[in-house]
Design a protein around this nucleic acid. Structure first.
Lengths: 187, 187
DNA sequence: GTGATTATTTATCATATGTTAAATGGTTTA
DNA sequence: TAAACCATTTAACATATGATAAATAATCAC
């Protein structure tokens, strides 16, 4: 679990007590490729940290599987539209290769916010940073061609190509698999 | 300033002391149509609440004016990519009609977080909610046609048509003014 | 109010991406 | 190893949106 705390420290340094309190609401799990961590339709009550492996958030749009986002090693993934609203999620988190995951119980985490303002601050900063990334992603979607977005993605996350099927990359980029194939075909 | 506090209360109820502390770092200003509240290139140190009027965040992409978002009465607007990173903003906030605005100094606000955990919580909840909206907007951009997005916008914010030039609506939707005109032309 | 500026529409042509279908290549399982 | 299944590519055609230019319409400044 040291890599989780190393990750958290980058956002805000915690006291020993706060760190221990977080440790107590975490579980390390190993997950096989292609399993869903939580089914679509259930309210999100867990924040996941990827120790080792890859995951994606996906949902179905008119029956088509759409990837909303990827998460790689040493990063957090959560269905925030459910986590922050308490509503059932239309999305699922899928593990894309055999992975080791830290599962943080969000109900217990949010309770810790009352006792440890420093923990509330830590996660505030984490999600503020994710929020900024999301705002920037809108700009990327709206004002770059699919080809530019594809090139930016493989520059930004070269591992994605090694670990993720192209069909998921296509839907993440907002295009069809056929379009992505065409883009890749052009030298 | 009562409408600001009414807005805040929807997210998290504050103690009298916290409310007063916030009141002390706010300024009410009246702003003429078409003025920029803060120039591009300066670090965002203010969160604005629209008492009366309309505003937009915009920036230049390859010399073209792009609207990132609108804000109407009883809502907050801030350049969060600068507010949360401390980096200079490439964006500006422009007032689109004569408006009355509450300006909240963010440096002082963030200092209040240390004294009033309830204020930190309040703004955490506000921005978490805005974060969720942004995630949903990505879905809207990626998987709906420009025409669908236009119709959704005028359904969602009918005032936008009365108060905002079409060219700003077009760039907000991610299309050219000419395309929007064509979409509107079709009965 | 008049002229100048700015916003919006209309038209034409170009292009990126979608849709469908079929061909090829790769992986899993019995 | 073969068979079945899944992923990726290729091809042909359709369509939404972009780019440019010109015509109206609306707004602003004097």
């Amino acid at each position: 679990m040291t890599s989780l705390f190393k990750y958290l420290k980058k956002f805000y340094p915690l006291s020993k007590e706060a760190e221990q309190a977080i440790g107590e609401i975490c579980k390390i799990i190993t997950v096989k490729k292609n399993t869903d961590l939580q089914p679509i339709g259930h309210t999100c009550k867990t924040i996941y940290f990827i120790n080792k492996g890859v995951a994606r958030i996906y949902y179905f749009k008119d029956g088509v599987d759409i990837t909303e986002s990827f998460a790689f090693e040493n990063n957090i993934i959560a269905r925030i539209e459910s986590l922050f609203t308490g509503k059932p999620s239309r999305k699922a988190i899928q593990i894309l290769e055999d992975s080791e995951i830290v599962a943080i119980n969000s109900t217990q985490l949010f309770k810790l916010y009352d006792t440890f303002p420093e923990i509330e601050r830590l996660f505030r900063l984490i999600f503020e940073s994710a929020y900024v990334d999301t705002v920037n992603r809108i700009e990327s979607i709206q004002f770059h061609t699919a080809e530019e977005r594809y090139k930016a993605l493989i520059k930004d996350a070269p591992n994605v190509l090694k670990k993720v099927p192209l069909k998921h990359i296509a839907s993440y980029l907002g295009i069809t698999q056929v379009s992505l194939s065409r883009i890749r075909g052009v030298k």
